[in-house]
Simulated assay, not measured.
Amino acid sequence: MTKLREWSASRIHYFSGKKQKPKKSKVQVHRLAWRKRSEEKAAAGKNMELKNLKLYMENMSILEENENLRKKANLLHQENLALYSEFEKKVSHLDRVSATLNVIRDGARV
């Protein structure tokens, strides 16, 4: 009787026009899952590499900009020192002229 049921079930299935998906063995399912995880890890690794490369390039750009700003700051400092020195010379010269005029004025009063 069981053979008859099996035969009837397969015959009905055959004539119904529906196709059954072939069952995958557990080994195939595990291999597919493992492959999928491996591909996901590889994709995540590539994403991480791209992010790392972008950050590295951004860091290099910042370092280059920092170096340029340091050079400009050094030039401005040198210019500031030169202007301050020039200012001190003029103030010193004005002090001497002022002192000379005071001596002349004081001599004229006496």
Rank of each mutant, 00 (worst) to 15 (best):
L94C: 02
N80W: 01
K51L: 01
N74Y: 14
K89D: 13
R70E: 10
H93A: 10
R109N: 11
A33F: 03
T2I: 13
R105C: 01
K23Q: 12
A42L: 11
K90W: 00
K19Y: 05
M57S: 03
S92W: 06
G45P: 00
F15I: 06
N74I: 15
A9P: 05
G17K: 04
W7G: 13
A73R: 01
M57Y: 04
S38E: 10
T2L: 11
R109A: 15
V103H: 09
K90E: 15
E49W: 01
E65Y: 12
A82K: 09
A43Q: 08
Y56F: 07
N74W: 14
D95C: 03
S10Y: 01
N74C: 14
I62A: 15
A108I: 01
L63H: 09
M57E: 06
P22T: 15
T100C: 12
D106S: 10
R96S: 02
E88I: 05
D106L: 08
T100L: 14
A42H: 08
K71H: 08
S38W: 10
L55T: 07
A43H: 11
R105H: 08
G45H: 10
M48W: 00
G17P: 07
W7S: 14
S25T: 09
N80M: 07
Y14E: 05
K54W: 04
F15T: 03
K41I: 03
D95R: 05
E65I: 15
M1F: 09
L101V: 08
P22E: 15
S61A: 15
E39K: 14
K3Y: 09
Q28W: 11
L76S: 12
L94N: 01
V97Q: 02
S10N: 04
S10K: 01
H13Y: 09
E39M: 07
Q28G: 02
M57W: 04
K26Q: 15
V29T: 11
V91E: 13
S16E: 03
N59I: 00
F87T: 13
E67F: 09
K51S: 07
K23E: 15
A73M: 10
K71Q: 11
N66D: 13
W34F: 12
S61L: 12
K24S: 02
K51N: 05
L75P: 06
R11G: 00
